[in-house]
Structures are given as C-alpha cells and as structure tokens.
Design a protein around this nucleic acid. Structure first.
Lengths: 160, 160
DNA sequence: ATTGAAAATGAGAATGAGTCTCACTATAGT
DNA sequence: ACTATAGTGAGACTCATTCTCATTTTCAAT
C-alpha cells in the first residue's frame, strides 16, 4: 500500500509559470507586478532551495533591502511566497506550495543548508488525518502543516 | 491533572524529575545547577505549553534577562531545553523531548498560541521511515524531526 | 574552615535582522 | 495629460537576543 512514490496526481498542481501566477494573484489584491517583484520571483524560482535575503541580494543585486522585504511580504500575503524560520540568523524564502507543490525540508543542523523533499502520498494523508484528529480535540481549525527533518548534510557529516 | 496518555512503548521515557535530569546533564558538562537554572526548569515544567522569555519573566520574576537567555542556551546544549522558532517576535522554550516525550505542536496563526499534541505511534514510525528514506537519497544523516500544525485556535476562530 | 580557580550573575552596551517613515517616482484608468 | 493610487529607496528605528566585564558564587582541595 505504499510502494508508490512517483509523479502521482498531486492535489495542488503547480502552475507552470510562477510569473503568471504572481501577476494574477497580486492583481486580484489590487497590487502590481513590478519589475522588482518579478526579479524576486525569478530569483526564488531559479534557486532549487529556500534562500535568505543575502542570497537574494547576491542573485539579484540592486534591490533595496526595505523593498525586498516589503515585496516578499506582499508576495507572501498573496500566497506566492512562503517564509520559513529555522532559528538561524535569517529567514528563508521559497515559492509557496501552490507553485512548488507540497513538500518538506531537510535542514542541516551544522551549516543550516536546506533541501526540499517530498513524501509519498499515503504518508501525507496519514499525517493529515492524525493532525486533524488532534486539532479537533483541541478545538483547532487546521490550515496547513510543516514537517522538517533536522540532520547533517553529507559534507558536514564528512567533516565531523 | 495531566491526562495519562496510554503508556505506549515510547522510545524515550521521560524522566520523572526534570531537576535531577538537568542536574546530572549539566554536571556531565562541567556546569552547575544553580538556583537560577532551577527556577527556569521549574517554570518550564510548570507551564503546560512552550513559553516565551516574557512568559518566563512573569512566572519567575527577578532573573536577569541576559542570565535567563544564557541559561536557556546552556540547558539547550545539555538537551534539557528545546527552543522553537515560530516566526513570532519571541522564541518559545519548553523542556526537551527526552523529558517531555516526543510530541508536536498546534500553532495559532492569529495569536501565536502553541499547544502540544501527540500522534499515534504508527503515524510516527511511518513519518520516520519516510523521512529516513528521503534523507538517504540526499546523503543526509537524520537526527530528529519537527511537525507543526498551523491553524486557528478556538478563541481566534470564534473571533473571526 | 580557607582558599583559589572556574563558573555564574547582573547591568547595561552592542548587534543586527527586519520594519517603518517619508519624500519621490511609476503606473493604471479616465 | 491628469490624477489617484501603488511602489521605491535610503536611512532611521525597533527590539529580541547576545556580548562584555566587573563582581559574586560555587566546588574541590587543602
């Protein structure tokens, strides 16, 4: 009942074009898809992993910090960008799950590097069910979950 | 008072006395279990949920902030305390899983309140297996995982 | 008991990620 | 073009957390 991990019918199909998605979502909120915002989305789409603000600055120089943070927040409110806190100095940003698909993270406790992973559908639905049951007991309305694995990446493990 | 969860074969049995545990772990690291540290552990053990530093200050007034943070860090290094980052203003602290048992969190996206939950053992082992498989593919050495459910707590949901 | 080395403390200074302000510029719709 | 609205950049600002350092406490060995 579980040997299935290939490209299955994922519930939230990722739009092929993050830019189109961002533009329409922003517009729906009465906001504009400016070149600065486009650069942000481009930087996030180009990175294979979540990135910090310094990362973004080195990928796309010339964006004022205040503007970058402001736009990241605007994009987050529209559901285009997701921010994750890891306890490190900086927050990490990535495209939201509606664009990237539902996934989780491997986080290196030594160097902080993050990689995306996906779990098989059966495990996911089991998680959802268990969490929903626990939420119900507490009077919680569930919205979404995050599941991160902490460990040592191959290079940090080799160095230890 | 504490709901006796079905005493399943939990891998890490919680020590009945957090203080004894803290004392021995600190000592093993060449550190002392001072009264200030004892107060911290007492505060964490007394709270049924993760707490912020301001919470701690109101529970146990009189501890200097710098000392509180320093000791929380010392206790974290010894595996007595666990810090969790939620993206809110403050970090949350709770006793480590070796004392509290493995559990997860419900986090209210509106007010930030956190509650502890436990999942059934079968779901847990399934999660572990899936994560371990994903980690292996990435050359990651798994250490531990965190699984948090974001949603709206009953009072925030009622207010909306 | 006394002492001395190591560890802990408190008060405040310092750090720095992230946010806010505001004057200015760009855009969309008429 | 005109105007109302949204976005931008530069830097000031906030505030949680960390650092510094002089003083105090603890522990172990005398």
């Amino acid at each position: 009942m579980d040997a299935r991990s290939e490209g299955e019918a994922v519930t939230s199909e990722a739009s092929s074009d993050p830019h189109a998605e961002a533009a329409s979502r922003l517009q729906a909120a009465g906001q504009r898809y400016t070149s600065g915002r486009r650069e942000l989305v481009e930087a996030l789409a180009g990175a294979a992993r979540p990135v910090t603000l310094p990362d973004i600055e080195s990928i796309a120089p010339g964006l004022a910090r205040s503007t970058a943070y402001r736009n990241l927040e605007a994009l987050e409110r529209c559901g285009v960008v997701h921010r994750l806190e890891t306890g490190g100095d900086h927050a990490y940003f990535e495209l939201a799950e509606s664009l990237l698909g539902h996934h989780h993270h491997l986080i290196c406790v030594t160097c902080g590097a993050i990689a995306d992973i996906e779990l098989d559908g059966e495990t996911e639905s089991r998680i959802d069910d268990s969490l929903a049951a626990a939420a119900r007991e507490s009077g919680f309305v569930p919205l979404h979950h995050s599941l991160d694995l902490y460990g040592r990446c191959s290079s940090c493990d080799a160095a230890a």
